[in-house]
Structure formats: structure tokens, C-alpha cells
Design a binder for these strands. Structure first.
Lengths: 195, 195, 195, 195
DNA sequence: GATGAATGAGCCTTCATTCAT
DNA sequence: CATGAATGAAGGCTCATTCAT
């Protein structure tokens, strides 16, 4: 029963994910989504109330997948170092696999409070997942540290997204680099003679 | 001071900065820019060929200001630690002062190659400024380290942008935190007992 | 008769024919066309990609009608004199019936190569139809003669277009005059005493 | 005194003649006219009240020149045949010399009653000049005959305007053809065996 | 007279959304 | 449920004209 309608629901989400991801919110037309999903334009509105709501749904599905996968991977690891490594690898590989969908993260609708709220929620959840790991390690400022770690990873992902020649091995290298830097700091690598 | 014709050019840039910053590219109407600048719609087009070109000009002015100010501040410092601190403070205070203009960084026109190219150039220049500091400190992987530091700062700025209650003192605290974490790593703060 | 969807297509062509014909290309607004056709502005664009394409379609339909009707009438006549008479009558009555649509022929969009090409094609086809008749009569310079005949008719139509008091009988009289003059020349009518 | 201002007046007319002629009324911008005339945009309005009035003035100057030259040439000829030949040559060579300015005749502003009236006046005057010649020859329907002759010439000019490879000799050949056809009719050239 | 910066009315076109079938 | 033809609001941009200098 719900199988058939879910099929269409998913087809729309998949189509929208592809199109929003490669073209961004404003450049993607509802008619393109319908065509890509193999259905009529009006049908999209039977499943999603508006273009913005569709974008929300795409984003939500994507973010939830991100968090769930992370959760699963973390449960298999037990040392702090391992867990931080898992986070780094997850973050970088997640975007590595989504090279083609950069616009999903950069070109969202501007003035949608619901989306803004959801993105804040997602960030909070992601951060809390990292905080939890750090608290197990006894961190004193876990939130700032979590934000910092995530921030490092997020910037290190940029070349992966925009440089087509990046390989999985490059991504892995960056994950290790990030883990090491975060744990030990830059000092190991520096000779802080006065400039 | 610098001439009457500059007045109107600047007025448009200022108006566009405010509006693009608070509403994003797509939500901002050229008529609003004109109204905010206190001129007629057609006049905007005497100074900027199109809406996209205006957005580019706003972005360029903003980014150039960011880099120039950073440069000036770095020249006054001499130790590596001081320079890293300056970078952190600059990054966080720059956005602190631009709380009202979030959208400028997040809601750009989607398919403008010129803008994409410019943003890549800006990021490269910012990174190279940090790389230079790190090289003076003898860093071996300066680019990855620079990206990581910038990433940390960029994430730490988020709350500043979106939480209206943040104060300058909060920003300063985060700057110090980031500097410390980057230099020494998280280990100082952790008790990595195996989970 | 020929389908519901054709109804709207035709309604737009009819409306555009009337408006372009009385106001010309530039003075006619797409909103007027829609209003005259009794549909919404956007609907026009479901049938015609642009204002220029709509003008082309109107022109093409009109010219094709002109040539087809001429062809039909010529097949019913067999002597050269009759055929020339038919051409003259067709030319003059065609415009007589289109008194209200002068501008269609005079006020086309300026720089549309497709339209220019089509008008050249139309003129060529019209001329060839006349050439064919003249060749059957053994003419030696059929193209120049055809152009000349058409030119006579085209000028004689002018008063018909612009003088509201012209009657069908006036048009017929002119058709006969043109045929006679073309066949026999002015000399019959002149007394070429040296001035 | 009036010399200097006449200079500017003429410069504007010359510029407008060139631009209207090659681009048509709607595609020609007042700023282009000013630039081509080597003066400021506002200055054009010191000499001509509006774009339409400027177009009128250009047209009027051109048409008056046409009629005056024709008049001069006719006075030098005395036989009817000569005069008709002069008319044909004048008509065809006039356009031959204006190959580059086709748009002046085809792309006029649409709804300007003053222009429509002037063009009608011009046509009347041209026709009367021909009528006068024909009356001297004793014609009985001089107006229709004049219109017919002018129409022939006008159509024969078309290839001259649009075919870049046309030479002055081609134009002359057509002029002779038109004169002959008009005087003697097509019959000389035809073998009106029944189709 | 000459300038050219400024004006603002006006139009083509797009596209999210609706609704009769 | 599905369709897709129809809608109409909305906005970027042009350009003839004006007027303060």
C-alpha cells in the first residue's frame, strides 16, 4: 500500500537531491524535478506542499543520513583517538561521495526560517555527537572543541568538493592530518622561533 | 572628499551590501537597492552593469577589506603566537562587526563563474597569508594547517553570527581558545582514558 | 472542429494578427495579445516562445494563405490574360479585405534574420508563381516582368489600404486597369507628341 | 551666425540618417545619434523636440531631395519617352546610392500620424510629378498610370537594395526595361497562346 | 547654448502553484 | 491519485527625456 506511494515520494526526493545539489535551489525548477522523477508537475505537489518544503525534505533526509551513519560508525570504536578518527573520515568521505552535489550545501533558499532552524538543529546534533565523544575523554570545553574540530574538517573538505582530481586516498590523508592536528596541536610541527 | 561621483558609487555599494547581506542575492531587488541608496532605479545601472556585477563589486570590496586589514594587523606582530592570535581575533571580530550581513557569504548567485573564481581567489589569498605565518614558524604542511586553522575560526564564528546575544568579549574568548587549541592541541584538555 | 488545443493556438494567432496588423510589432504588447485572445499572459508563452516567434507565425500564416489562395484561383483559369487578371484581382482584393491590418506588412521587427529570410522566400515564391504564368506565355524576361507586374499591383493597392472610402468595385477597376496596362502598355493611352 | 547652429543641425540629421537608415527607428538610440554626431545627448533635444520629430526631419529632407533632383532632371528632357526614362533612372539610382540605408524606408515609427501624413504627401507629390509628364503625353488615366509606373520601379529596386552584388549597370538595365514595358506593354514579349 | 547624470515608466518573460478533468 | 494546461504576480533592465550646472 504505502509501497507504491513511497516509490513516488522517494523518486521526487532523489530527483530533487540531484537537481538541487547540482544547480542549487533557485536554479532548479519544479518542472525539472517532475521530469527527472518521471512524473507530472502537479504530482510533486501531492507529496510536497511547496518548493521550499521539498528542499527542506531533501536536506533533512541528507542530514539525518549523515548523523545516523556517524552514530553507527562511532559505536564500533572505543578509544577516543579512534572515535575522533572516525569522525574525520566520516566527514570527509561523506562530502567526497557527494562531490556532485555541492550546491545543496551552498545554495539554499534565503529567507526560510524553518530551514535555518533545521540547519541549526542539525549543527547542534552533529556538535553534540562530537561533544559526547569529547566528554568521554574528559574535555573541559567540549562544545568549543567540537566546533573547532568540525570546522577544521569542514574547511579541509573544500578542495575535495571543488577539485575534481581528488582521490579517496587524499581524503583519508586529510582525515588523519586533522585528527593528529586536533589531538596534538600545531606545535609538534612548528619551530616557533620569534619572527 | 574623494569626489562627488564617488559618493553615488559608494552609496549604491553600501545599500547593496546591507541588502544582499541581510536578504541574499535572490531576495534583494534592484529597486530596493536604489531606494535604499536614495536614487532612481535606472541610476544603479549607470554604475553597475547588472545585478550580478553589483554583487561581485560588493563581495570584492568586502573581501579586499578583510585581507587588507589582516595584512596591516599582522605587520605589527612579530612572534608566531602573536600572529596566530591576530588572525583569530581578526576573523572573529570581522564577522562580529558584520552580524547583520550573514547572507552575503551564504546566499550568492548560483551560476556566476566570475564570482566562483573570485571567491576561490579570496580563499587562496587568505590561506596564503596564514601559510606565510606558518612557514615563518617552520611548518611542514603549511597549507593543510592553514586551512584547518581557518576552518576552526570559521565554525567558531557561527554562533557569533546567529546568536544575537553574543558580545565582543565572547568573540575574544573564542579567539584565544582557537589559538591555544591550534598551537597545543586538544590533548592538554583531554584525559584519553580508553572508552 | 480540429481540436480544443488548436482553439487557443488560433485564438492567439488571430489576436496577434489583429494587433500586429493595426499597431505594428513594437507598439503591440504581449499583454494586449493575451487580453484580446481572452487568456492569461503566461499562456501565450505556452504556444509561442517569444514575441518575435509569434510575429513570425502570424506572418507565415498570412503569407501562406495568400499564396495558396492564389494557386487555387490560377488553376481555374487557362488563358494568359485570364491568369494575369486573376493575379491582379487576388492581389488587390487580398489587401482590400485586410484594410485594417496595414501594419503587418510595414512594421515588422527590425533585426530578425529569420523574418527577413522568410519575407524574401515569400517574395520569391510569389514572383515564381507569376513567372510560371508568364513563361507559359513565352516571356523572355519573366522575372523582371513578374516583379514589374507585382510592383504595379502593390502600388495600386496603397489607396485601398489607406483610403477608407474605397469600395470593392474600385478595387476591381484597378485590377482591370493593371492587367490592361501590363499587357498592352501605356502607348495605347498616350499621344506622345514631343513636349 | 546661423552657420554654426546649422552645422550641428546638419550633423544630427546626417547621423540620424545613417543610423535610422541602417538600424531602423526602434533600434536606433538617441544616445547613438548624439555620439555619431559628436555632441552630447541633451544637445539633440535643442534641435529636435523628440526622436519622432527627428525621424520626420530626416525623412523630409530625404524625400525633398528626391523630388527636387527629379524635378531638375525632368526639365532637361523634352520628349515623353525621355522623361519616363529619366524617372526610371532617377528612381533606381536613388535607391542604388542608398543601399546602405534600407531601413529608413521600411522601419519607421508605427503610430505617428504626422509621419503617415507626410509620407502620403510625398507619394502624392511624386505621383503628381509623374502625372504631369503623362498629361503632357495626353494620358486619360494619368493617376493610375503614374502609380503603376512608380510601383513597377519600386519593386524593381528591391534586388538593388538587398543584393549587394548589384551594379550601376544592372540598375540602368532595369530602368530601360521598366520604361520599355510601361510604354509598350508585355505583349511584345509574349506569345499569348491559350494555356 | 551645451552638457551628461539622473530619472522612472514600461515591457518581456519566468515559473511556482492551482485545479478541472 | 495523477495530470499538465493555465495562471498572473513579480523583477531586471532599457532608454527617451529632463534639468541643474
Amino acid at each position: 500500500m504505502s509501497g507504491v506511494s513511497n516509490d513516488k515520494h522517494s523518486a521526487i526526493l532523489d530527483a530533487a537531491y540531484t537537481l538541487f545539489g547540482s544547480g542549487g535551489f533557485y536554479e532548479t525548477k519544479m518542472s525539472q524535478v517532475a521530469e527527472q522523477a518521471g512524473i507530472a508537475k502537479g504530482t510533486v505537489y501531492l507529496y510536497f506542499k511547496s518548493k521550499e518544503e521539498l528542499f527542506m525534505a531533501v536536506t533533512r533526509r541528507d542530514c539525518e543520513g549523515f548523523l545516523q551513519q556517524l552514530d553507527g560508525k562511532l559505536q564500533a570504536r572505543h578509544s577516543l583517538t579512534d572515535k575522533l578518527a572516525v569522525i574525520a573520515e566520516h566527514h570527509l568521505f561523506y562530502y567526497y561521495e557527494r562531490k556532485q552535489h555541492t550546491k545543496l550545501f551552498f545554495r539554499a533558499p534565503n529567507n526560510n526560517p524553518e530551514l535555518v532552524a533545521y540547519m541549526a538543529l542539525f549543527m547542534e546534533q552533529y556538535m553534540q555527537a562530537v561533544v559526547k565523544v569529547l566528554l568521554e575523554g574528559g574535555a573541559t570545553e567540549p562544545e568549543l572543541m567540537a566546533q573547532s574540530y568540525i570546522g577544521m574538517l569542514d574547511r579541509l573538505k573544500m578542495d575535495i568538493l571543488f577539485d575534481a582530481s581528488f582521490t579517496a586516498a587524499d581524503a583519508l590523508k586529510r582525515a588523519h592530518f586533522a585528527g593528529r592536528l586536533f589531538i596534538s596541536g600545531a606545535m609538534d610541527n612548528l619551530h616557533p622561533s620569534e619572527g
